[in-house]
Amino acid sequence: MEKKTLPFNGTKEQEEQLKAVIAEHKDQDGAVIPVLHKAQEIYGYLPIEVQEMISEGLDVPLAEIYGIVTFYTQFSLNPKGKYHIGVCLGTACYVKGSGDILDKIKEILGIEVGECTPDGLFSIEATRCIGACGLAPVLTVNDDVYGRLVVDDVAGIIKKYQEL
């Protein structure tokens, strides 16, 4: 399934930074992963445009780069929204119903985990245990933590950020 994503709007400065990173690693064995890490630092994610620049620069097939990006969970194909929602699916939260909370968020925003809303405002991530089991079920929006949630709380939380 095609994931919803935002149009690429990388800047000239970002491109220059990436080119410098590629030049630094160019003739090194196993350059792809360190370059992908740096590229993700520069752009926040690894869209096709960025992967093509890396493929061209390192002379490594795009299919191989894409294979690596999708293999490792720390690489992301999608940008994070202005408000990045993390729903804890650790054992305690899950037992306390965080799965339903996640479903509700997906329903309201119309996106899947790993995607970003077309307005760039929200993205969703399913996280592992964030160490706040006493507050289960827990979600985070950027650095804010919301605990002891029920499904009906979700709409209000999202609304709050929409109105910020």
């Binding site: 096709i48 992967q51 097939p61 795009l62 299919a63 191989e64 780069i65 894409y66 294979g67 999708t70 293999f71 194909l77």
Partner: peptide, 16 residues
């Protein structure tokens, strides 16, 4: 084409 994703979700596919 190359292997994409991992584990049970591994598939042979083209980029994106």
């Amino acid at each position: 084409i190359d292997a994409t994703e991992r584990g049970f979700k591994t598939t042979i596919a083209s980029p994106f």
